[in-house]
Write a protein that binds this DNA or RNA. Structure first.
Length: 549
RNA sequence: UGGGGUGUCGCCAAGCGGUAAGGCACGGGAUUUUGAUUCCCGCAUUCGUAGGUUCAAAUCCUGCCACCCCAGCCA
């Protein structure tokens, strides 16, 4: 059998399993799943798991299920399942099935009764506190529950009464009967069913007992015929329990195999749902889709192309080392993707007026949409000889090797003409108020005419007459230093992803649904490409806040 | 200090007994109507550490050290 070349340890395991012939009865089909709990929004950390799972599906021509791991009714809702589905689709992933763990409640219940009848589970009356107290510690074994040896009949009766709503929340639980002295605390008779008189968003009032993750997850995997259950490192300690649950449930071989990998961490990026929620709840951001949030909705609104996120995950790779990827690596992927796909636009964020004294009338210039795609496609840009340029593109006292404009110097206005600065108008404070220039008609962009006039640099501009209609959306600082919810998180909060920029203003398109940004010059985001073509930054940038001072 | 994991360049990460891939970052040079892009070139005699086995070790063995995870009726 032809095995694809493994590029990470997970694929190595899969290849070994395939080579062993254990899936021959199933046509050697690999089946994986992506199992989020619909209790929140997907963020960039989830993209790694998505890429790994969908990557396996692609590579092995297998199947993948999107499964909502909805076993805790208190936290879950359709709002989240819809948002998760949208996010997965936005990333361009196509799953084979959409499943819900809650659809397995009947089967799960049946298996729980089997556990009882096989003597592998018992109803325990201990309170949550008592269970904790008798669980033992990292170094001491736990104590067996006094209810551990109830008869099968009694257990069955009690469990059915639990199901029928006879007991209040917390009165009883169903526990797996494993080993209270196991060095692995997860094996010390873990709770597998709890009572919760809470309606489920999909099952309504049908149940008042709900299965725990450690029980529901392996069973769900087995029911779906999952071959490889990929999850993050913190579940390594649960693997023996995962295997136990499947074995005692009596599933036929081959059963799913759990493999763990390190989750994604990015410098200065908050991946904790708890703190992200706090930002939303306390009004630090406009919502889960605020472009400063590391949620997929936020990244989308910020203009990050989905393919950039996928490339990022591919670049980062899969391993078991705890690592923190520098956000520069993500940014490079965004730039790379945008460089080849985004339409270019000119933008000015800190403007100063430049007037060409020998220019009259107005004209339309051709602006190349994307110099890297080879299409040569252009769009018209109006030019009236009176424009705004970036303040930093002009220097009263040019430093050595300065390539842009200064008095007596030449520069090209991108897609337009080369201009020479003849004079500068200063205001009462000595700040540059207006730059007066002469332009050279023969240097028109695209002109074949040879000119003696040369310019070392090229700068962006926005026409003073036609660029003014636009609106400029600015970021406000997210939090002041003393307002961080927790000092430990201050550093991580102070990050690019959620735009705590110490008051620094950065542009972003608020209305368009499909925005993108590009790092045009080292140090700051300047121009914006827009796939939808609706809002180019030259239109967004503006003028409102900055130009009328 | 019980158990489970992990330690390879500033950051990710290949490597699986035969003499350290790649990406990001960084530095240098060329091209350039974005100081962008593109393009070359440079960037670990060394793999947590101390020993051992071997002709040969990041890869095998042993002992240390460091960091992460586990005591929810969350997932």
């Amino acid at each position: 059998m032809e095995l694809p070349e493994a590029t990470n340890f997970i694929e190595q395991y899969i290849n070994e399993d395939l080579a062993s012939g254990k899936y021959e009865g199933r046509g050697n089909q690999i089946v994986v799943r992506f199992p989020p709990e619909p209790n929140g929004y997907l963020h960039i950390g989830h993209v790694k798991a998505l890429c790994i799972n969908f990557g396996v599906k692609e590579k092995y021509n297998g199947k993948i299920n999107l499964r909502m791991d909805d076993t805790n009714p208190a936290k879950e809702d359709y709002e989240y399942v819809n948002s998760i589905i949208d996010a997965v689709k936005w990333l361009g992933f196509e799953y084979d099935n959409l499943f819900f763990a809650s659809d397995y409640y009947d089967k799960l219940y049946e298996i729980a009764e089997k556990y009882i009848m096989d003597g592998n589970a018992y109803v325990c009356d201990l309170t949550a506190e008592e269970i904790t107290a008798t669980r033992g510690t990292l170094t001491e074994a736990g104590k067996e529950s006094p209810y551990r040896n109830r008869s099968v009949e009694e257990n069955l009766k009690l469990f059915r009464e639990m199901r029928d709503g006879v007991y209040p929340d917390g009165a009883k639980v169903l526990r797996a009967k494993i080993d209270m002295s196991s060095p692995n605390i997860n094996m010390r008779d873990p709770v597998i069913y709890r009572i919760a008189h809470v309606p489920h968003y999909r099952q309504g009032d049908k149940w008042c007992i709900y299965p725990m993750y450690d029980f529901a997850h392996p069973v769900s995997d087995a029911l779906e015929g999952i071959t490889h259950s990929l999850c993050s490192l913190e579940f390594e300690n649960h693997r023996p329990l995962y295997d136990w649950v499947i074995e005692k449930a009596g599933f036929a071989q081959p059963v799913p195999r759990q493999i763990e990998f390190a989750r994604l961490n990015i410098t200065n990026t908050l991946m904790s749902k708890r703190y992200l929620k706090k930002l939303v709840d306390e009004g630090f951001v406009s919502g889960w889709d605020d472009p400063r949030m590391p949620t997929l909705m936020g990244l989308k609104n910020r203009g990050v192309p989905p393919m950039a996120l996928r490339k990022f995950c591919a670049d980062v790779g899969v391993a078991k080392n705890y690592g923190v990827v520098n956000i520069a690596q993500l940014e490079e992927c965004v730039r790379d993707e945008l460089n080849t796909t985004a339409e270019r636009a000119m933008a000015v964020t800190d403007p100063v007026k430049l007037t060409i004294t020998n220019y009259e009338g107005e004209e339309e210039l051709d602006f190349e949409k994307n110099p890297t795609d080879g299409s040569g496609a252009t769009r018209p840009v109006k030019f009236t000889g009176s424009v705004y340029i970036e303040k930093s593109d002009f220097a009263l006292e040019p430093p050595p090797k300065f390539k842009r404009l200064f008095k007596g110097g030449y520069v090209r206005l991108k897609a337009a003409y080369i201009v020479r600065c003849d004079d500068v108008v200063l205001d009462e404070k000595g700040e540059v108020k207006e730059i007066l220039c002469t332009y050279f008609p023969e240097t028109r962009s695209g002109s074949e005419v040879k000119s003696e006039v040369k310019a070392k640099g090229v700068i962006q501009w926005v026409d003073a007459k036609y660029g003014k209609d636009a609106e400029f959306v600015t970021y406000k600082p997210l939090l002041k230093d003393e307002e961080y919810p927790d000092q430990d998180y201050a550093e991580r909060l102070n990050c690019d992803s959620i735009r705590i920029t110490e008051g620094k203003v950065e542009p972003y398109a608020a209305e368009s649904s499909d925005k993108s940004f590009q790092l045009m010059r080292t140090g700051y985001y300047k121009a914006c490409g827009c796939a939808s073509g609706k809002a180019r930054l030259s239109e967004i940038v503006s003028l409102k806040d900055n130009f009328n001072k």
